[in-house]
Design a protein around this nucleic acid. Structure first.
Lengths: 121, 121
DNA sequence: TATTGACTTAGAGCCAACTCTAAATGATAT
DNA sequence: ATATCATTTAGAGTTGGCTCTAAGTCAATA
């Protein structure tokens, strides 16, 4: 599939797809006879995985490192595991912070309920 | 307390404190005879609350709206409650996404364990 | 009195992560 | 054949959120 189709199915713009390639997150995209990018199934899967890493706030620099290891093949699986473990720890920490954030909001909402009545209801 | 003391106790730079004032997140800071900022107890509390909102990824534009309502006084408590409720919903959604992220990482780590052995151990 | 040091301001610079522009090429539709 | 349209590239511009610089003021100390 070409770039605009790929763009649609992964949910990011063509600009961004080219940008990811430019900075090395995506590599070895096949070109057709006109020189246009032809994204294949496993490219799409990889981009989807990248989007997941992005969702969980892995910075692009980290993703790039991960991508480099991936493109080196199976002998880097140990290193990739380590990276993902670190990422997981950070995620768990973050989830804890956000959960505390919810509690803070609940406390604040409770206070507002007491002093303000509910003028918007 | 002056700006550098305030900076230390809230954990953000003097630059950032002035920037927050410039964009309207913080207002009405008392000045001493020399024109230097004198942060008071309730200023510090407000800044700490702002930092919590920031931690939970409320964008500065939203924080600014919230700040404007706060500086208008108690008649805006209804609106502020609404904002915090929206923020809370977003947070809960985010927590769910991150929890799914942890699961994704666990699945990937399981796969790596199977195919790669553990070359880093 | 001279200098040191913390503060003041307006505005420039920086970084991440896009987002877009301009100019060119090549395939398809009229 | 000409126009239209998606694509290509390099590189410029944008946004959010700071971060710093330059030039100046003021109070305290040697």
């Amino acid at each position: 599939m070409n770039i605009s189709e790929a763009s649609k199915i992964v949910g990011i713009s063509s600009y961004t797809l080219r940008y990811y390639e430019k900075i090395g997150l995506i590599k070895n995209i096949v070109r057709d006879k006109c020189g246009n990018r032809q994204y294949e199934k496993n490219d799409i899967e990889w981009i989807r995985f990248l989007m997941k890493l992005k969702d969980i706030r892995m910075p692009i620099t980290q993703m790039k490192l991960y991508a480099e290891l991936r493109y080196k093949g199976n002998e880097t699986i140990g290193q990739r595991s380590e990276m993902l473990k670190v990422q997981k720890e950070q995620l768990l920490k973050r989830i804890k912070e956000l959960t505390e954030g919810v509690e803070l909001l609940d406390r604040k909402l409770e206070i507002y309920k007491k002093i303000g009545g509910n003028k918007n209801e």
